[in-house]
């Protein structure tokens, strides 16, 4: 009979990802690259919002985009038309990106000379909220047809984001979406979040989002790393 020995580990499984993410943030800060992690449900208008945003910012900032999807490259093709540097990342069935995959994606994209890299995360309100990608800031889109109850159902996503874009406000009149109630629900979860109502279709609110991005990029490049 062999003797059994217990080796006490007490190791949080996500600690390794959190450490990798922190290191990636430091590296990006040293290189002066701002990484924005954009998350939402599928169909909320991430790619349309990005296209509008890139077109407004491309004369001022050098922009790269990482499109993370389980499969296909339709989003990458759409974004490439704006002239931004694009890479399509296939997660191979995985529902989120972690810091290691993000780092690989950045290496594949080639980030020298870029000011802003936007990571379009896998469309999902659950898993991407759990995994720190190493981004400078987190953004999310909630679209009107999804409903104003989403902050109640997916609280973590709203807690970890720095900015919330409420998209498709051009169709507010045909949905039972109470925008003030939605804002109140979000602010209760995260009092520091910035909320910007937009319509990616008409372009409403996009300039305000671009101003937020420009300010954040400026701060990121200006402040020395901790």
């Amino acid at each position: 009979m062999s003797e059994f020995k217990i080796l006490e580990i007490k190791q949080a499984v996500f600690e390794k990802n959190d450490r990798q993410a922190d290191q990636l943030r430091i590296d990006l800060k040293n290189e002066g690259i701002f990484l924005l992690n954009l998350m939402s449900s599928p169909g909320s208008g991430k790619t349309t919002t990005l296209t509008r945003t890139i077109n407004l910012l491309k004369n001022e900032l050098k922009i790269g985009v990482m499109e993370a999807d389980i499969d296909s490259d339709v989003d990458a093709i759409t974004i490439a038309k704006t002239g931004a540097k694009v890479i399509q990342l296939h997660t191979g069935g995985m529902c989120h990106l972690d810091a290691g995959m993000t780092k690989q994606g950045l290496a594949g994209l080639g980030v020298n000379e870029l000011d802003l890299v936007i990571l379009e995360n896998v469309g999902n309100l659950v898993c991407p909220a759990e995994f720190d990608t190493g981004s400078s800031k987190n953004a999310m889109i909630l679209s009107v047809p999804e409903g104003d109850d989403k902050p109640l159902k997916y609280p973590l996503m709203f807690q970890i984001c720095d900015v919330l874009l409420i998209n498709k406000i051009d169709v507010l009149s045909v949905f039972d979406f109470d925008i003030e109630l939605c804002k109140a629900r979000v602010l209760k979860l995260n009092p520091n979040i910035k909320i910007i109502p937009i319509s990616a279709r008409t372009g409403e609110g996009i300039p305000e989002f671009c101003d937020w991005v420009k300010e954040e990029v400026k701060n990121w490049k200006g402040v020395s790393h901790e």
Partner: peptide, 10 residues
């Protein structure tokens, strides 16, 4: 929590 608490070795 999501923790590797311990491993038992032979």
């Amino acid at each position: 929590e999501f923790i590797i608490k311990e491993i038992i070795v032979c």
